[in-house]
Design a protein around this nucleic acid. Structure first.
Lengths: 167, 167
DNA sequence: TACATTCCCAAGCAAAATAGTCAAGATTTC
DNA sequence: GAAATCTTGACTATTTTGCTTGGGAATGTA
């Protein structure tokens, strides 16, 4: 199991998609703007999500993406697996001869752990996430600020004072 | 939580140390050879393990490392935390303003997950690992093959046919 | 048909992280 | 004092990440 921002981006985007389900296809441009993820990067992620049938796409004007299944049938673990290819550990992925043609000492431990994490993540559906109060609150705020941002063409982000609170 | 080979190396080395506990201080050179980890890399890892008092060191000839506590009081999670500094997620680690000065949608999910994994790993002690049958078996083999390897200076690993089984 | 909008895809690239090397030193034992 | 061992820091190579660029292909609309 690998846990990187890549997987987080994917889950965030899928959650965004779920929250706007029922509004017809959602464009990646919308998601990119709402979630602050680069459009091209999203395209790469969604390419993999589509290959795993987690999303369905419609081309052309008015097109976009929608969920491949209902939100309560898509699990976080699936999303992460889809974008983070080698879900296994990097060195001895599945191989029994990690070291000196034998299993490495902790081989079993890591496979145990991987499946443990995987189990945990595969119990959480996108619907579960949507049901969370904090998620709904943030989503509502995002939809509002989105409407404001749409009018202005681009937000200037030259040197945002991100660490004012610190020090 | 971050799960990389770095953490795996650390746990493997600590497990090796546990298995040879009672034989006096163990040198990193021994561990490096048994577990196939570069000595200098081990040095870096053990530097961090020592700072967290997970190991104790004795310098000079006959010196080496020993466990900082009993094997049933050292948990896998601690070992991983010790070497993998930023145990938190990379982007919005702890910050509440991941995106647009708000919490990102999945912020809560990731902190939940992190603590979940951490809990799991902090229930497994080095002693637990040693009690596993497969670990004891591999360890026994390693001790044997180690004695053989000591006589030959270096194993030639020019082009090992690692993918014969494939295709 | 033209064209704008959207998905699709592949190559490349900078920054960061990972895994490892190298070199110099500090302690201790013999 | 010499050898063994830990200790430390700087340096390097490789991989991964996050992102850009630049082109397509499909499709709805005028």
């Amino acid at each position: 199991m690998k846990l990187t921002t890549k997987g987080r981006y994917a889950v965030t985007a899928m959650l965004d998609l779920s929250l706007h389900y029922g509004e017809g296809p959602i464009t990646l441009a919308d998601i990119a703007q709402r979630q602050g993820i680069s459009l091209s990067y999203l395209e790469q992620l969604f390419s993999r999500l589509r290959k795993k049938s987690l999303v369905a796409s419609v081309r052309g004007p008015g097109g976009g993406y929608s969920l491949g299944r209902d939100a309560d049938e898509i699990y976080v673990g699936e999303v992460i697996s889809a974008v983070d290819e080698n879900i296994d550990t990097t060195r001895c992925n599945g191989a029994y001869n990690c070291h000196n043609n034998e299993r490495c000492l902790t081989h079993e431990l890591w496979s145990d752990l991987s499946s443990q994490i995987y189990n945990y993540l595969n119990k959480i559906s996108l619907q579960d996430l949507m049901d969370r109060k904090t998620v709904r609150e943030v989503a509502a705020r995002q939809d509002h600020s989105n409407q404001e941002e749409v009018s202005g063409l681009e937000v200037t982000l030259a040197d945002e004072p991100s660490d004012l609170a610190g020090a």
